[in-house]
């Protein structure tokens, strides 16, 4: 299962990087969303995945076999990361909308006016 998820994460990163390198701002933004989802999956996977194991220790148990329960911490981290990226997504879309309102373009090549020339 780890291999499948690992390959899937790789694919997501590839898609994200491809989208970030496009010229349209909307696609760049979508690319950032894909990258952030791939990153969340990395956290999930690196904490170790167990099939069907809840993150609870049975009452009164002295020792627990770590292979049978899942680690709750990565899930908590992902939850935090998702909430943060939700807020940022909302903001970045609003910013894009405002930018389109002002300039009428979503071509990244038009964003050269503030650059270091």
């Amino acid at each position: 299962m780890e291999y499948i998820i690992a390959i899937f994460i790789g694919l997501l990163y590839a898609c994200g990087v491809y989208l970030v390198l496009r010229r349209s701002i909307v696609k760049v933004i979508l690319g950032v969303f894909v990258l952030s989802n791939a990153t969340n999956l990395i956290i999930f996977l690196s904490g170790g995945i167990t099939r069907g194991g809840a993150a609870f220790i049975p009452e009164g148990a002295e020792t627990v076999d770590p292979a049978t329960i899942s680690d709750p911490l990565p899930q908590a981290l992902i939850l935090t990361a998702i909430v943060i990226s939700l807020g940022i997504s909302a903001y970045i879309l609003a910013l894009k909308y405002r930018y389109f309102d002002v300039t009428g373009t979503h071509d990244l090549d038009q964003l050269k006016n503030t650059d270091q020339r």
Partner: peptide, 13 residues
Amino acid sequence: LEGSIKYLILNLI
């Protein structure tokens, strides 16, 4: 707006 798009995307990455 232009500056903030650049600032935002690179910092998110």
